[in-house]
Structures are given as structure tokens and as C-alpha cells.
Nucleic acid binder design. Structure first.
Lengths: 239, 239
DNA sequence: GATAGTTATCGTCATAACGACGACAAAGGA
DNA sequence: TCCTTTGTCGTCGTTATGACGATAACTATC
């Protein structure tokens, strides 16, 4: 490390991804089955090492494109970094975790890019406590929990829920995002009043759709407002 | 990097700190004047390299103790990581920035630990747009802005404001934290009603104080509630 | 010791927002 | 045709909010 003090310990930098989506109306996370040691055969969050001249953000974008084939239409933000010296048995690996939200039923894992370093890819269901049925490699369970919690919190005061929807979506589709991510059932009528009444939150397209069955629903796009004031209140947990 | 792929590029890991406090009722950030190149003579956020066997969190705690002499009574949380390859001219240095909030007028910079690697330490005033009058080294202006924005956002829905106060504080002291961090003037009566009415937010001590002048004010401690529902709404910017 | 200044705290009132519903509309399927 | 599903508009009582008046209890000052 030229130019830096001698005592500086070199670390490897990884960019890992918590990619969330909705499958059949419930929250799922993208996972890859590890083909090498350590944790061989275990499910892990997709990710990889940051390359030379690359920021963690750009590495995350690259990994996301590699794993899902999705370029745009994806929300991507930095989540947190994990630097416990013992988190990777191979050595000092620091992970900059990112949170990605992709529209429902987009990018099925079957459509995986060939030639990737990951053998098997799947959407794993996320339980209410933000974990998966099967254990994850490394400290990825913790990272997933943090990612789910971040997504849950941001739904309250931001327009993030639309990231789970197509470009044009109905109020009901948006509400089902909240239902799935929060694990609740919001009242359709109050939700409708709330989101259509929030200025700048939804832009009416003018057309309708019947793709969800029932009466035709008006289509909307994300409005210019990124934050929602007052926020949508998450119902208190009944436990 | 034994056990890791050859292509993995080693980076140096730094833990930097956005330490905020209130000085004379206005927001200030802890800064050190750099004694070496690069950016020699410039103000910079305190921080240092993560040592062997140390997590970024622990490095931040260590740096915070070194710079301020404060151990507990400090709120410390991870803010974000900054990994632009060009952010440090010396080489690949990734900074895990942390946000620390210390009680008002605690830990004056004069009380700096001797023998530190930083020559001069000061509380710099933070402007409304989250910057300092003098430019900061590296990308620290960006980090500071993110830290201030995080603090502002968290005041809305969390009990974080109490981190700027002593163990026991009055409602007025708490309100002045909001005034300073948000750059507004909240109505004392509505604020009092709001925070004393929020269950679990404030624990009454039972005693009073006159240290702020005027009529004696009841003393409180932080209650068990860490989040505030409904949140304290930040008044809209008049711009 | 009266008085002004400061801060704390309680109350009022109109308005806005919310939660729980009822009611009806408009589609598809049985 | 009827039933089910989903969407949308209203109603009503409760709660929260913003703006502000009024009073209480201390300190500093004249």
C-alpha cells in the first residue's frame, strides 16, 4: 500500500446484494447456491468482489445486471457494511451490502445469465422476521434482516413501494406491496384515499386495466414526490 | 490474500466519524486539522485506519474515545461507506463513515487526548445545508452532508434527540435540539404536548431544574420507546 | 421588593388525518 | 343471470395537529 502507513491492514472488498421482489404476492429474496468453499452448497446472497477502479456501488450494479439481467427499472441503494474480522474464514473480507428492489415476477431466476460464477439461483421466500427457511452463508442472514428492515421502514415515508411494481400500476397493486412487505392487510379504501390524496405521490396515466380481475382500476405512475408526508403508518404488531 | 481469488484488489479500510453536538444551541461537527499530506492543513473528519482483528464499528469507537475522551453517553451508528477509487490520492482507501452524537458542550476539543495523531481539534459550525464554512479534505463534505441528513431524518421518528442531551433533560432542552438540528423554531406548547403524550418516549424523573432559567422544568430520561409513532413532523422548508 | 424577562405548562379551537366501515360500480366466471 | 372479485366514493367518530391565549414560577434588575 504505497503512500499509506505500514500498519494499514489490507482487506478485500465485496459488494453483496439483498435483491427483494414479490413472487405470488409474498416477499422473496434472490439467492445463489455456493459452488465453492467455504459454505459450499449453502444459499448465499449474490455478490462479488469489487474490481480495480470500481466503486462498491458500481460493483453492485454490475453484479445485479449479471445475476438478474435487469439494468434499469431497479431501485438500488447502499445498505450497510459488514466488517467483522471473522465474518469470512478465508480472510479479511469487508462486505458493502446493497439493497435492490425489482418489480414483481420480473427476472425469473431461470433467466439467469449463463457463464456466471453461480450455479443455481432462486427466489427464496422471506419470513415475517426477515429470514429464510434455509440458513444462509456467512453473515448473510443478518444482512438480509437489515435489508428487509430497511425496506419496511422506507415504505412508510417514501415512494419506494412503486419499485416493486411495473412502470404503470394500480392502487391495488401498490397496496399489495405494502401487504407483502409489512405482512399485514391494509384497508383498501383507506389506502386508496391516502395515496391518491398525497400530492405528487401518484401521477394518473388516464387509462385503466383489468389485469388484476374485478372492476377496471386506474393506472398510475410514480409522481415527483420522493417522500410522503404524513407517512403511511405501519399497523402495530399484534404480538 | 490467501484463500481468495488472485484478482481481488486489496484496499485499506478507514473508519471516519461525523461527530455532531450542540454548541451554544447550534449544530457543530468535530474536525481535525490534517498534519500531513494529502490535504495538509485542511480540516477533516476525525478517523483512522481499521486495525488488524478490528471491525469498523470497533475502530470507530476507539477513534471516538481517542478524539473526545467520551466512552459511553454517546450514540454511535454506522452511516455509510465511501468507496470511490479516486477518493484518496494515496491509493485505494474505503471509508466506513459513522455518525456519533454527543451531549451538548461535552468533550470540548480543548480536552483532547494528548499524544493523538491529530494536531488541532475543533467544533466547526454546520450550516443549514449541512456543510462547513471551510472546505473539508477528501470527500468529507459529502460524508458530513449525509450524516447531517441522517440525523435530521432520524429525529422525526426516533428518540435520537435525547443523545444530544444529558442523562436527565427537560422538554425545552429536547426541543432546542430539534430547533438546532432542523434549523427551525418549533412551538414550545405543541412540542410539549406531543412528547409528553407519546407513551414510552419520556420517563419522568420527578425532580425539576432551573438550569435553563425561567420557571422550573420537569426532568425526564429517555423512555423505553426507541421509535415515535406518529413521528414529529418536520415543518416544510419555506424555500 | 416590585417589576420585567424568561421559560414551562395547561387549555382552547378549528382543521386535518385516521381507522372502521357501508355502499355501489364494473369487470369475469359459474 | 348471479356470484365473486376488485375498485372507488362516502360517512362517522376519534385522534392528532397547528396556531395561539393564559398562567405559573423562576432570575435579574432597578
Amino acid at each position: 500500500m504505497p503512500g499509506l502507513p505500514d500498519a494499514v491492514v489490507p482487506v478485500a472488498l465485496a459488494a453483496d446484494l439483498v435483491v427483494l421482489t414479490l413472487v405470488d404476492g409474498s416477499l422473496h429474496v434472490l439467492a445463489v447456491r455456493r459452488a465453492e468453499a467455504p459454505f459450499i452448497g449453502r444459499w448465499a446472497l449474490p455478490g462479488g468482489f469489487v474490481r480495480e477502479g470500481e466503486s462498491a456501488q458500481r460493483a453492485a450494479e454490475r453484479e445485479l445486471a449479471e445475476e438478474t439481467g435487469l439494468g434499469s427499472r431497479v431501485h438500488l441503494e447502499q445498505l450497510a457494511s459488514y466488517s467483522d474480522p471473522a465474518r469470512d474464514p478465508r480472510g479479511r473480507v469487508v462486505s458493502v451490502a446493497h439493497l435492490a428492489l425489482v418489480p414483481a415476477d420480473d427476472a425469473p431466476p431461470e433467466a439467469m445469465r449463463a457463464g456466471g460464477d453461480a450455479a443455481e439461483v432462486a427466489w427464496l421466500p422471506v419470513t415475517d422476521d426477515g429470514s429464510t427457511a434455509e440458513p444462509l452463508a456467512f453473515d448473510h442472514a443478518r444482512i438480509l434482516r437489515d435489508g428487509v428492515e430497511r425496506a419496511r421502514a422506507k415504505l412508510e415515508y417514501s415512494a419506494l413501494a412503486a419499485a416493486f411494481c411495473e412502470e404503470e400500476f394500480t392502487v391495488g397493486e401498490l397496496r399489495r406491496v405494502y401487504d407483502a412487505v409489512w405482512g399485514v392487510r391494509l384497508d383498501a379504501r383507506n389506502f386508496h384515499r391516502k395515496v391518491t390524496g398525497a400530492r405528487g405521490f401518484l401521477d394518473p396515466v388516464g387509462t385503466t386495466t383489468t389485469r388484476d380481475g374485478g372492476r377496471p382500476a386506474a393506472l398510475f405512475r410514480r409522481g415527483p414526490a420522493s417522500t410522503l408526508n404524513p407517512p403511511i403508518t405501519r399497523p402495530p404488531e399484534p404480538d
